[in-house]
Amino acid sequence: MKSAIHDYLRPKKKFPHVWCPGCGHGIILASIVRAIEAAGKNRDEVVVVSGIGCSSRAPVYVDFSSIHSTHGRALTFATGVKVANPKLTVIVISGDGDGMAIGGNHFIHACRRNIDLTMIVFNNNIYGMTGGQASPTMPQGDYASTAPFGTLERPFDVCKLANASGANFVARGVVTSPIPLEKHIKKGIEKKGFSVIDVAETCPTIYNFFNKTGNPLKMMKDLKAKAIPVQKANTMTEEELKGKIVTGVFADRYYPDFTTSYDKIIMDSAKRSMKDEESI
């Protein structure tokens, strides 16, 4: 059976892709494509914006208008697209290094601004493309090329950060469960305001190289075992939750989004400017 994904791959395909065998990025990209289709979006009115890194190569492969922007700045380009033309559906693809370190300031401000974008964080806890440096979501004590004695820093929880910063919709999926992941992304696209979907995944090449986490299959199995639905997590103690990844929806709010609010300013200003013209 031909799936939606084939229909959305770029006609002159830019394949083979850059991702390693066993990488989770393909699963997430496929979930995004299915979610866009399920949300009933006209593909001509979708713009996919990414930054720099393995995950940020994703837009090249799919048939939407796309901006492969600069490192950490996907949200800034996306904000420009959305504000300049609010009719467009704008989806942001970013990695945990791109989105949470160099792009971390843009992230919290996009949440605060509650601008109608959907951001999907391909979160594999490491910088893959540059050879395995510690990322801001790397669990404390794990190894990386820049953390040969184990990383000293505590990781960001992407969802807690987004929730506290005011995003309208915050959820976490995991690559080993693509169906709920797709649902979260669809909900995010449909939601007015800023939506964040953090996706827990694996990097079987680089993460495994520094942390001996095993082959891709083992890493996927381990990841699946770590994933705990938020409802269940709510009944567990902090000790029990150590090393687990809590999945599900963390925020689902209805605060007015930036561009809708701005439309009201335009309406009011038009009236005011007519009065000004008369007084000249």
Partner: peptide, 27 residues
């Protein structure tokens, strides 16, 4: 906004530059 245009105060200088590039791509 009087002319139907849009203004945004961004969080920093880098994002302002990114935003005007994104905006320009819509024409």
């Amino acid at each position: 906004p009087m002319l139907g245009g849009r203004f945004i105060q961004m969080e920093d200088e880098i994002s302002s530059m990114g935003a005007i590039i994104g905006g320009s791509m819509t024409g």
